[in-house]
Amino acid sequence: MINITERHQFIINKVQKEGYVNVLDLCKALDVSSVTIRKDLKLLEDKNLLFRTHGGATVNNPYMTDRPVNEKEKLQSAEKMRIGAAAAKLIQPNDSIVIASGTTVLALAKSLQPRESLTVITSALNVALELLRHKDIEILQLGGVLRKSSSSVVGPYSEHILNDFFCSTFFLGVDGIDLEFGLTTTNSMEAHLNRQMIANSQKTVVLADSTKFGKRGFGKICALEEIDQVITDTGISDHTARALESMGVKVTIV
């Protein structure tokens, strides 16, 4: 049996080469228990040599920082438009929906082509401006404190307005999806508003490109069991998709 130093070096070499290591694979390769491997990963994380994730570890920092919306809009733009177009197909005639903030839900707004009336409640100014071109869409713009980085409002005033309404579907954009920690965003006030939107909607659909998986933001929105569907792109791993489905979450890949 190899010693702890050799074991740690094996793990470091593997994660640097492959970008990600799985606890069960390491157990088989090193012939040790999962308890031992998890202790190894914690020690290596404490030394800033890797980052622990659900069931393994990665070389990439999973913790997200706030970035301006015009910067994020340029990232994975093709994937976001496919996700937005798929989400638009879920909306029914005479529907009432909630759209949160973010560049992926903005792609949904750009894809909407309502044939009959539609009511949209949104916290995002860019979403509201995008929907203004449709005569059949009634827009209820929430008020509150304006977050310049996301062009959206947060705070108790927007949450108070939401209490007067109940909608069929909430379309949510996130900064991170972690199988253990759940859905997150970089701002705690936005996370709180998102929780209120979930409570005031019959169904929650998360729109997220595959780079959001394995990431964590500062503010937790909710656990994965509290959402109904995730629409993402083909970059999602089979392991993550199966884990989501085991939690009762429908996974749509576009």
Results as ranks from 00 to 15, higher is better:
124 A>V: 00
56 G>L: 11
103 T>Q: 05
13 N>L: 04
250 K>C: 07
55 G>S: 11
145 V>L: 10
242 R>M: 12
222 C>P: 02
104 T>G: 03
90 L>E: 09
222 C>H: 07
231 I>S: 01
210 S>I: 03
192 H>P: 05
169 T>W: 00
65 T>I: 15
241 A>Q: 13
75 L>M: 09
192 H>E: 15
168 S>V: 02
39 K>L: 13
88 A>R: 00
204 T>R: 05
47 K>M: 14
200 N>L: 08
68 P>M: 09
57 A>S: 08
190 E>K: 08
131 L>F: 04
19 G>A: 14
92 Q>D: 12
95 D>P: 04
96 S>Q: 12
119 T>E: 01
186 T>R: 08
8 H>V: 11
126 N>W: 01
249 V>Q: 02
17 K>E: 15
37 I>Q: 06
14 K>F: 14
74 K>C: 06
232 T>M: 09
23 V>G: 12
232 T>C: 11
201 S>D: 12
245 E>M: 13
19 G>I: 11
150 S>M: 09
104 T>K: 00
10 F>S: 12
32 V>L: 11
50 L>M: 10
73 E>F: 07
134 H>I: 02
127 V>E: 00
105 V>Y: 03
131 L>G: 04
213 F>R: 01
25 D>S: 06
137 I>L: 09
224 L>A: 11
229 Q>P: 00
182 G>P: 13
120 V>R: 00
2 I>Y: 14
44 L>N: 13
175 D>Q: 03
44 L>Y: 09
188 S>D: 14
220 K>V: 15
151 S>Q: 13
52 R>C: 11
29 A>F: 10
159 E>D: 04
34 S>G: 10
22 N>I: 11
28 K>N: 07
72 K>S: 15
47 K>N: 13
94 N>M: 07
75 L>C: 10
4 I>K: 12
88 A>P: 00
183 L>K: 13
168 S>A: 06
147 R>A: 07
143 G>F: 01
176 G>K: 07
37 I>E: 07
164 D>S: 09
240 T>H: 02
219 G>Y: 05
240 T>S: 06
194 N>T: 09
7 R>Y: 10
148 K>T: 11
130 E>Q: 05
11 I>V: 15
32 V>Q: 14
208 A>W: 01
89 K>M: 07
211 T>D: 05
145 V>Q: 10
106 L>S: 03
68 P>A: 11
